[in-house]
Design a protein around this nucleic acid. Structure first.
Lengths: 292, 292
DNA sequence: CGGCACCGATGCCCCTCGGGTATCGACGGC
DNA sequence: GCCGTCGATACCCGAGGGGCATCGGTGCCG
């Protein structure tokens, strides 16, 4: 490369992976170790990338590495792009494996949530002629988006306003009110309804802590909760209480009771899929869902 | 490569570009010419890719090339992923260039549409302390999505239900009714309002044809229209008429008249941005817009 | 029915470029 | 002031990506 004339050329995913590793570690040595390579070629690769882009991505001294503004942009956007490639790869592999039979779709939803709606949907879809086989994948709270984006799932049931739906295409399915779920015998269970302020400030029953979009738990007094079965068990034990969609009542057993919360925000169950991946099989499932 | 043991490895963008070219041309020779290379290395590259993925992407005979189901998936998803990479690159370059000054954002909207709202938004945003400079990019109808996705723009004003918003994050800004825009002096201009059925079936004034999401024009009798200035000129010439949002009235001049359409669907102007690209600058602009 | 033209795959060669090792130069801490 | 740490540079090597020539299969046409 005597003259730097190889401008017009797209970044290779390898370069992107390298950059992301360095940007995350902010340390060439550690990043190289993580990538299973030596440090010098990594330094050179990043240098080449910067020259190609015509942008300084990292501010380096011999003692520290910092992201520039351009580097921050490439980190954010590049992560998404890399995820998109990996998702494309995974979905291609899945389709190829399933190609012996007919179409398959992986539907993901929070374990325990919307179970009635889900049952209805699966029944209705199975009744469609020529419908794809639906594999149901149950996951913990807040993991659906990741599973959709990384290609392990094709379609999800989410709950607004709780789940983050950025970057997904959605159709609304059903809206419902919310109830306060309590241990059976709690004084409030005799009330016909409660207000949100009462529900969230119960003495001795701090609200549970759900993982945020990043998978981390916020700080606070309540117990960490990963799925609905866990939550119900903790409520029955008198350790916490929770405001949940109406439909969760069908899951309650003897140790639990529910009281309507008058002024809680309505929860809408939506069906979501990654844009650009609306295959015929996914489209069919979405159509069935919206007709329920 | 004696043992095919190099499984775990991510697709390179080069391979993806090669595959997309072949999948689009369905012809190795033509694809190779398009890529500026010879046919044999292209064949080998595709073969390697298939072996890595463990999937047959193309069904080849010596006379024809056809996509398999897995190939169709990779074409669809791979295109999106490649666009994401190119967008990341473009945005990185843009930020780096602008890094001398302060933050810049490119806002794109259809030429002529929502001009009042746009003016308000720009004024309000300019009044924010430390706000990013907004470069306005006016484009033809239906091009906003592409410009957002390929990284030439950061944020767009779109109109529901006309514009396709798949794969974009949005916030609603304003909803308005629609009016029928006619040549001045047309008999209907004396009416206080009309119905949608009357508006779309005007004898001698066939509706214009807009480009679809793919940039192609549907068939039909009316003229092909690319932007609002063109449209107004054609209406003034008595060649067509159109149902447009209320706010277009501020653009009308003497040769044109507008009549409210009672039962036309409401049009909502939304501000949209690509997911994962909500930089501080874009977030600030969105916040300003939603507060208008 | 045989020759031909077309097309993708294969064999072979070259040389680029990505990666490794050794080392340098800058900087901070003890 | 010396040493340890960290990124950049110098130099070398080999895998692999790309080009050219050619093969093998297939539909078409005379």
């Amino acid at each position: 490369m005597p003259g730097g004339a190889d401008y017009r050329r797209v970044m290779e995913t390898r370069e992107l992976r390298y950059f992301i590793a360095v940007a995350e570690e902010l340390h060439f040595g550690r990043a190289a170790r993580r990538l299973g390579m030596a440090q010098p070629p990594l330094s050179r690769a990043i240098g080449r990338l910067e020259r190609r882009l015509g942008a300084t991505l990292l501010q380096r001294t011999s003692r520290s590495v910092a992201l520039t503004e351009a580097g921050a942009v490439l980190l954010r956007e590049g992560r998404a792009a890399l995820e998109a490639i990996e998702a494309a790869e995974r979905r291609t592999r899945r389709v190829a494996l399933a190609a012996t039979g007919h179409a398959r779709v992986v539907l993901v939803t929070k374990a325990g949530a919307s179970s009635e709606l889900l049952a209805e949907l699966l029944d209705a879809h199975a009744a469609e002629p020529g419908a794809a086989t639906v594999d149901v994948l149950l996951c913990g709270i807040g993991e659906q988006g990741r599973l959709l984006r990384d290609g392990r799932a094709d379609v999800a049931l989410l709950h607004r306003p709780y789940d983050v739906m950025a970057g997904l295409d959605t159709e609304d399915l059903r809206t419902e009110g919310q109830v306060l779920v309590l241990p059976a015998g709690h004084p409030l269970t005799s009330r016909p309804h409660v207000r949100l302020a009462e529900a969230t400030e119960l003495p001795g029953l701090p609200g549970p802590r759900w993982p945020g979009p990043d998978g981390r738990y916020p700080d606070g007094p309540g117990p960490e909760v990963h799925d609905q079965a866990q939550l119900f068990q903790l409520i029955a034990l008198g350790r916490t209480s929770a405001v949940l969609p109406d439909s969760c009542r069908s899951q309650l057993h003897g140790d639990l009771a529910a009281v309507p919360v008058l002024d809680a925000p309505a929860v809408t169950t939506v069906i979501a899929w990654p844009p650009h991946s609306r295959s015929a099989a996914v489209a069919g499932l979405v159509r069935t869902a919206t007709r329920l």
